[in-house]
C-alpha cells in the first residue's frame, strides 16, 4: 500500500501483455493495464485518472458501479473497468 495505489504498468500502455502483469494485481482500465495495490478501490482509480469526479461514470465488468459505492468496491485481479464522461456527439 504505497501512496499511489494505482500505477500504470511500465511499458505496456501501448501494447498490453498480460504476461507482464502480476496476475493478482492487474486490472484493465479504459483499455490499458494497471497494477493496483491490494485493497485499492474503484474510488482510487477514479482519483488517479480524473481531475474531477463530476460527470463521470464507472462500469466494472460491464456493471455500473454507483458513485456511492466507489469507495467500498475493491478491485479484483482481472477486473475490466471503464471510466466514461461526456464527449461531443449525437
Amino acid at each position: 500500500m504505497g501512496e499511489t495505489p494505482v500505477q500504470e504498468v511500465p511499458g505496456v500502455g501501448a501494447s498490453p501483455s498480460p504476461s507482464q502483469v502480476p496476475s493478482d494485481l492487474g486490472v484493465v482500465m479504459n483499455g490499458h493495464e494497471f497494477v493496483v495495490a491490494p485493497g485499492a478501490t474503484v474510488a482510487d482509480l477514479v482519483r488517479t485518472w480524473c481531475p474531477s469526479p463530476d460527470g463521470i461514470a464507472v462500469a466494472r465488468n460491464r456493471e455500473v458501479v454507483p458513485r456511492s459505492q466507489w469507495g467500498s468496491t475493491p478491485l479484483a485481479a482481472g477486473d475490466v473497468v471503464e471510466i466514461v464522461t461526456a464527449a461531443a456527439g449525437g
Partner: peptide, 14 residues
C-alpha cells in the same frame, strides 16, 4: 452528448 472514455484531452468540459 455522447459517452466516451475519460482521457487526457479534457473531455467533460462540454
Amino acid at each position: 452528448v455522447a459517452l466516451r472514455r475519460v482521457d487526457a484531452a479534457g473531455r467533460g468540459g462540454i
